[in-house]
Design a protein around this nucleic acid. Structure first.
Length: 541
RNA sequence: GUGCCCGUAGCUCAGUUGGAUAGAGCGUUGGACUACGAAUCCAAAGGUCACAGGUUCGAAUCCUGUCGGGCACGCCA
């Protein structure tokens, strides 16, 4: 266990015994990494407790501090109620000796989480926005799993409705064009080049369509179009290191009559009414600012109705938490969906919708405006071919989901600190290189050499290694994998500084093995961090 | 107009569920390879945390307002 987690447990124990009346002592556990001049970790709990207990924070801090009987660190209470912890050198050596990365929830119950993400319309190729959800969702998945959650991932396929019809009509028009027949391109249809490719593929697969009237085979063409578009999306995602446990087809909800059922349930709960020939859901009784249509005047259900049915089915699967990753352009949709879940009596608080801001794509300093309709776009596949999956994933996952990001294609291809993945990779490559260069047999008990570590730079690195659990916990708490990216850059920096100053390969073997142990642990942590991004550390560059 | 997000160094961004003296990289200027990989390191310069109030032991962080930018406001999906 990291010292950080040890300190958390001890603090909890002491607060519980000092204040047995507090119902949720966990909510008062707050530990941060200190400003170096004050120590290594700082416990902020006394000041949180002071507000709650209406007692002087410094008194509380002193009481907590007295409870700590460990002699493995020094402890100091400072106004207005900071409890500063400074680790002794021997403790740091032991942290290095014992360090390993383990799931935090190892021996506890593992909550089940379903993450739904990407969920693009199967009407064309993925673009960089989908890439962002893919990179983020997959990293979140890997991070939560590593922490100990039981995670499954899902892609919701919107293969039903007007967009799919329009897509099919666009393909049929292109097929007719290829056959030199008269055709009318549908209004608002899909103009992208890829539609012609798909038309060609379908014609090659089904030569009979060249003779027959294509409209008679509308459903067949739609089915083929869906398969081609979806498989291309899957292939792109796979090349991006992103795979899903399940694909849920919207059409299934229609085929199995789930939508009518959900509408009936809502009606039976007196949550609907008729107006202007349509059936409305009383979402404004809950979180929404107006009511929404479930069944249109023409008798067809809305996308919203299908989405309610989808989430109703989702909730039947008994996960503890449902995470949806949506683009910010769907933010207006949250209130109505959560309202519908409330109307159904479902625990909507289990549905966590993470909104991602959009990505602006630049080439040669020009913003590229993309539109699937006009076909003016750079696809995710193009970017993967151009800059490669590692750089793309690193970049897309290295910023908060909540900040709009600019992606400059030229800069992503440069190998500079504008492209910090290489800074981390260079640290990994240097460590691998040293491992290759050490000719002797590495001793089995290399952990025991931790006691020869004593340089300030080295102890600094051990502290940073111990911080891994702190940042992982924070990333899990906020659903923000990028915290680990910032952490990896910091750790890499400490390594590069150290590397510059100290030789690892050394005639003095106790020094050599202790230093090798240290950088091996750095390597382990960096590898773990990169694994969340599905990036393999380089042994050579 | 209404709702959501954002505004930190010339640029791109960090900044600990509010915590101690706001930090990195790029770019600029100067320096370090006869030692494990110089894709590195060291140093300098660079700030009214958009602006104005408020909350409290403490605000870049929370609240209110103003200004600026992005997105969304369909019986499309």
């Amino acid at each position: 266990m990291s010292f950080y987690n040890h300190l958390k447990e001890e603090t909890l124990k002491h607060i519980s015994s000092l204040y047995p009346d507090i119902q949720d002592p966990n909510s008062f556990i707050e530990i941060q990494i200190s400003n170096p001049q004050y120590g290594d970790y700082t416990i902020l709990s006394a000041m949180k407790l002071a507000k709650y207990l209406k007692e002087s924070p410094i008194k509380i801090a002193n009481k907590i501090a007295e409870k700590f009987s460990d002699d493995i660190f020094s402890i100091q209470v400072v106004n207005p109620g900071f409890i500063n912890i400074s680790l002794k050198d021997l403790t740091l050596q032991n942290i290095l000796r014992d360090f390993s990365i383990k799931p935090f929830l190892n021996n506890r119950e593992s909550p089940k989480i379903l993450i739904e993400y990407v969920s693009a319309n199967p009407t064309g190729p993925l673009h960089i926005g989908h890439g962002r959800w893919a990179a983020f969702g997959d990293s979140l998945n890997r991070l939560l799993k590593d922490y100990g959650f039981n995670v499954q991932t899902e892609f919701y396929v919107n293969n039903y409705g007007n967009q799919m019809e329009l897509f099919t009509q666009s393909i049929i028009a292109r097929m007719k064009e290829l056959l030199k027949q008269d055709f009318v391109f549908p209004e608002g249809g899909y103009l992208g080049e890829y539609v012609i490719d798909i038309a060609n593929k379908i014609l090659n697969k089904h030569p009979i369509l060249t003779k027959e009237e294509q409209n008679l085979h509308f459903d067949l063409i739609k089915e083929e179009a869906l398969n081609i578009a979806l498989n291309e999306q899957k292939e792109t995602l796979n090349n991006f290191g992103v795979n899903f446990d399940s694909f849920f087809f919207e059409s299934k909800l229609h085929e199995e009559d789930k939508i009518n059922k959900i509408v009936d349930i809502l009606s039976s709960k007196n949550q609907t009414y008729r107006k202007d020939g349509a059936l409305w859901l009383k979402t404004s009784d809950y979180l929404d600012n107006e009511d929404r249509v479930l069944i249109r005047e023409n008798g067809l259900p809305t996308y919203f109705a299908a989405d309610i049915a989808y989430h109703y089915e989702k909730f039947k699967r008994n996960f503890d938490i449902y995470i949806n990753i949506w683009g910010t352009d769907h933010h207006g949709y949250i209130a109505r969906l959560k309202s519908a879940l409330k109307a159904l009596g479902l625990p909507e608080e289990r549905l966590i919708i993470l909104l991602g801001q959009l990505v602006n794509l630049y080439r040669n300093k020009n913003l590229i405006r993309m539109s699937k309709r006009t076909g003016n776009m750079i696809t995710l596949k193009d970017l993967l071919d151009d800059v490669g999956p590692d750089v793309l994933r690193f970049y897309l996952a290295s910023r908060s989901l909540n900040s709009t990001m600019d992606f400059h294609i030229e800069k992503a291809k440069e190998v500079t600190m504008d492209n910090p993945l290489y800074y981390i990779q260079y640290a990994c490559a240097r460590i691998s290189s040293i491992e290759r260069n050490i000719a002797e047999q590495i001793p089995d008990n290399i952990e025991e050499y931790s006691k020869y570590i004593e340089g300030a730079d080295e102890l600094e690195i051990i502290k940073k290694i111990d911080n891994f659990d702190f940042f992982r916990e924070k990333a899990v708490r906020d659903y923000e994998p990028y915290y680990l990216v910032t952490y990896m850059l910091d750790l890499s920096r400490l390594f590069h500084i150290y590397y510059q100053k100290c030789r690892i390969i050394n005639d003095e073997k106790t020094v050599q093995w202790s230093r090798l142990l240290l950088i091996t642990k750095v390597h382990e942590v960096l590898s773990k961090g990169l694994s969340y991004l599905h990036i393999i550390p380089l042994e050579k560059m």
